[in-house]
Design a protein around this nucleic acid. Structure first.
Length: 870
DNA sequence: TTAGGGTTAG
């Protein structure tokens, strides 16, 4: 009211002067004058004063035009304001009239009209200065044309006030171009423009986001020098900034030194602690607030609920729920949405549903929170259903709900449902933003369709690191390691990898046994500071285990200060795969001592280790421990036990074990028994077991080959023949065996009887010489493994051409003496090859490490680590 | 200072 009175007074004092001015005969009026006149008109229009008629008579036609347009602007009638503006195109309107209409365009986000106003201003020859520059910048920026806004901003630098600098900086921050915001801040400093609290809040946010704690400290000093050090808002911003950039101690120090703490200061401490993973400390701050009787607001409770969710404190969360209702926040959307999320994250879906049910206005956030709550509980179909239900209620999905529903599809492992959702997006013609594209690719990758994932990937114009990581990880997980490595290499031309990338690509190296590539990646990890990222280190250990370099896995394992369940499991698996059962058992026990609880994967690993080392008693103990840990034994645990019993010669016990299993045995379980029958040459049982296997997996060639091996070892060639006919009738083909070896970072693959290799002749000659030497030392080839009904010479020739022998021979020829030869094979090693490689290790004094589809064989001095129980 | 989502290891 007081302001109104002041305006009225101003108006009265200037009106006479204004009205007697014949502006039409003057060149363009001075800025100050125009501004004065605008105030007058504004008052005329906005106040209902009964202005004496004599004051109005001198007002020109233009005044009416200006007044009319401004009036339309005030009531928000852009259409009529534009019409009038267009009609008076060649007239001279006040700068403030243009300013008013530009302001309205900005508020309404009407770029087209805004551009038209700009064009009228230009065609009238009005220079962009005074109020016009900032208004045009504001209009363009508000309407989303940051580039044009910036162009005008740069041209009108001297007219730009602090608010405009703040606007530009915050707009660049909004689109994630923090470096440009920082550049503008530096320019502002250079021009001697002093910032205000908004400037500092914005720029501090930018520094925090680009992770420059040191810069934050420098700005901190600058702010103090400018005298903003005691400004509550600035200090609160500084606290938030330190938290965002990880400077937790500095934030605490600032808060401790802040004499005049307001509710925002406390809230900043709570949210900052939550952000940095100190949810319990956040809850302590809240308790302090209550003790000191600091008034809490909605933000306090929302932050505290997030802390409860992260800390899993359901009872605390419930108490905050009560407090919020008492404080009349029960109808606040933000409060309820956070409450719903808290109940869900604390594992109480029912209460989350109740909150949702009682909510007045359910926004897209509420629906997304509930969708995520269902996903968290593994109720993927319900989550997907909710998404469609939300749409039926007329609520359009946003990027969060779209990614959430795709997440549900990905985890439900249902490609059809995922495709349906994708088609639904297409049908609705929704814009597929980058996070949505990433979620789509992830869904396709998790559902096993890398082709569709790649299709989405290839259509993204600007991929981010997440896009690359999803694709690389997808290829790794979908048994396409070569594609993963290829994409990893392509990625480095466009984007810088991160820790996630490493964890995605290392399994590909492991599956290819590509030790040299893996070592190269290890080097990159060390150089780029990812060696303390546990995900990365665990993936590295796994790579070394799978590439046959157990010692490197061990070294890494020993260096991890806080080993997690995955670290322990990788090491147990490693020992198991390399035939070191006792070390696996000792590692499992150490893990228990440090208080880490095994999960079902750990039990599979230890049972596998026991079975491959024949540790029968230990195996039984671990098998019984599964239930003691409240885990229900799964098929893979039973399979390991059958394998253990069968390997150790307890074939009938193994058979009974399978017969009395509480869950229906699958082909893997029966297959383990069939394998035991082969080791112990029990043809009769093998036939009985094989029928179960063939019934369950009639198209798996591997099992037919296994039975054929049993027959061949018993020299039952007629049965081998029958089995071959059976395979042929089913249209099955034996998977071609292949082996590969890395030499100087390059992988070379061999198939059976490979004659295409440039060194083929030398390799065959070496193998023949070795064979002669072996025979002279009393060795006889294991012809039974030839699996062909031919004469002995043919069989021997066939055996000589086995891919693993070729690869080992290639290694002997091409790796300097003393170097370990590492070969990988896609199938199980053949018995004859196993014998021959043993001999090769003795006669060439080489350590040979052979990875087959089942385990590692370390050959040294004529012996193998598997103890011939391969 | 305040709510929901998406990429990693056994």
């Amino acid at each position: 009211m007081l302001t109104m009175v002041k305006i009225i007074t101003n108006f009265s004092s200037c009106s006479t002067y204004n009205c007697h001015t014949n502006e039409a005969n003057y060149p363009r009026p001075l800025k100050g004058f125009i501004f004065f006149r605008h105030s007058l008109r504004k008052c005329l229009l906005s106040s209902n004063l009964d202005v004496p008629r004599s004051t109005r008579v001198g007002v020109t036609f233009m005044l009416d035009e200006n007044a009319k347009i401004s009036k339309f602007c005030e009531v928000g009638d852009l259409r009529n304001a534009m019409e009038l503006l267009k009609m008076s195109q060649n007239s001279e309107l006040d700068l403030n009239t243009y300013a008013s209409i530009l302001q309205l365009c900005a508020e309404r986000r009407r770029l087209q009209e805004g551009k038209m106003v700009h064009s009228i201003i230009s065609s009238n020859g009005i220079p962009i200065e005074g109020v016009l520059g900032p208004k045009l910048v504001f209009m363009y920026v508000s309407c989303g044309d940051l580039r044009e806004g910036r162009r005008i901003f740069d041209h009108t630098l001297s007219d730009n006030k602090v608010f405009l600098w703040n606007l530009m900086m915050s707009e660049y921050a909004k689109i994630g171009d923090y470096r440009e915001s920082i550049y503008l801040f530096r320019k502002m400093q250079k021009l001697g423009i002093t910032g205000n609290s908004y400037t500092f809040s914005c720029i501090l946010k930018c520094f925090a986001t680009v992770g420059r704690v040191e810069e934050c400290k420098r700005i901190h000093g600058y702010i103090y020098k400018l005298g903003f050090g005691s400004h509550n808002t600035v200090v609160n911003s500084l606290i938030a900034t330190y938290f965002k950039s990880g400077g937790v101690d500095s934030a605490h120090k600032l808060f401790d030194e802040l004499s005049d703490r307001d509710v925002v200061s406390w809230n900043s401490m709570i949210s900052g602690c939550v952000m940095n993973g100190f949810s319990h400390t956040a809850l302590d701050f809240f308790i302090q607030m209550l003790i000191l009787r600091v008034g809490v607001d909605l933000a306090t409770l929302v932050n505290v609920l997030v802390a409860c969710a992260n800390a899993g404190s359901l009872s605390f969360g419930r108490a905050v729920h009560g407090l919020g209702v008492k404080a009349c926040f029960g109808r606040e959307g933000r409060f309820n949405n956070t409450l719903l999320d808290m109940y869900s994250k604390c594992g109480n879906l029912n209460e989350a549903i109740q909150v949702f049910g009682k909510m007045g206005q359910k926004t897209v956030v509420s629906w997304t929170s509930l969708i995520s709550a269902y996903v968290r509980e593994g109720l993927y179909d319900d989550a997907i259903r909710l998404f469609y239900e939300m749409e039926c209620k007329g609520i359009s999905p946003d990027v969060y709900s779209m990614t959430s529903v795709l997440h549900a599809c990905a985890h439900s492992n249902s490609l059809d449902k995922g495709r349906d959702v994708h088609n639904y997006f297409r049908k609705k013609n929704v814009t597929l933003s980058l996070p949505v594209c990433n979620a789509l690719m992830d869904m396709y990758a998790k559902c096993g369709s890398m082709e569709e994932a790649y299709l989405v990937f290839s259509q993204i114009p600007t991929k981010d690191i997440v896009s690359w990581n999803i694709m690389i990880g997808g290829y790794s997980k979908n048994s396409l390691p070569n594609e993963a490595l290829k994409l990893f290499s392509e990625m480095q031309e466009e984007s810088r990898p991160d820790g996630f990338t490493m964890a995605c690509v290392l399994p590909a190296c492991g599956s290819l046994a590509a030790l040299d590539v893996g070592r190269g990646i290890h080097g990159w990890i060390l150089r780029n500071g990812y060696s303390s990222d546990l995900h990365v280190v665990n993936a590295l250990m796994d790579m070394y285990v799978k590439c046959g370099s157990l010692i490197h896995a061990q070294l890494l394992f020993d260096m991890i200060s806080e080993k997690d369940l995955i670290s322990w499991t990788v090491m147990i698996t490693g020992y198991g795969m390399h035939g070191l059962g006792n070390e696996a058992v000792a590692t499992f026990q150490k893990m228990r001592i440090v208080g880490i609880k095994p999960d079902e994967v750990t039990f599979t690993s230890i049972l596998y280790a026991c079975s491959h080392s024949g540790l029968l008693n230990e195996g039984w103990e671990f098998f019984n421990a599964i239930s003691e840990c409240n885990i229900e034994p799964k098929l893979e645990h039973y399979a390991c036990m059958v394998d253990l019993l069968a390997r150790t010669g307890n074939l009938s016990k193994a058979y009974n074990f399978v017969e009395t299993m509480p869950i229906k045995p699958d082909a893997t379980v029966w297959g383990a028994l069939l394998c035991g029958c082969r080791i112990h040459h029990d043809v009769e049982l093998a036939e009985k077991v094989a029928e179960h296997v063939f019934e369950l997996e009639p198209y798996n060639t591997g099992y037919y080959v296994l039975l054929a091996n049993v027959y061949a070892e018993a020299e039952k060639w007629e049965e081998v023949k029958k089995l071959r006919e059976r395979i042929s009738k089913l249209g099955l083909k034996k998977s071609p065996g292949c082996s590969w070896i890395e030499v100087q970072g390059k992988s070379t693959t061999f198939v059976s009887a490979d004659s295409a290799h440039p060194q083929a002749k030398t390799i065959v000659s070496l193998l023949n010489n070795l064979r002669i030497k072996m025979k002279s030392e009393g060795y006889s080839p294991k012809m039974r493994y030839a699996l062909i009904n031919a004469d002995e010479t043919e069989k021997e020739a066939a055996l000589c051409g086995h891919s693993e022998k070729l690869a080992v021979a290639f290694g002997i020829l091409n790796l300097s003496p003393g170097r370990t030869i590492r070969v990988a094979k896609n199938l199980r090693v053949c018995g004859d090859c196993h014998e021959m490689v043993k001999f090769m290790s003795k006669t060439t004094r080489r350590e040979i490490i052979l990875r087959d589809s089942n385990r590692f064989h370390h050959f040294k001095d004529g012996f193998c680590s598997c103890g011939d129980f391969w």
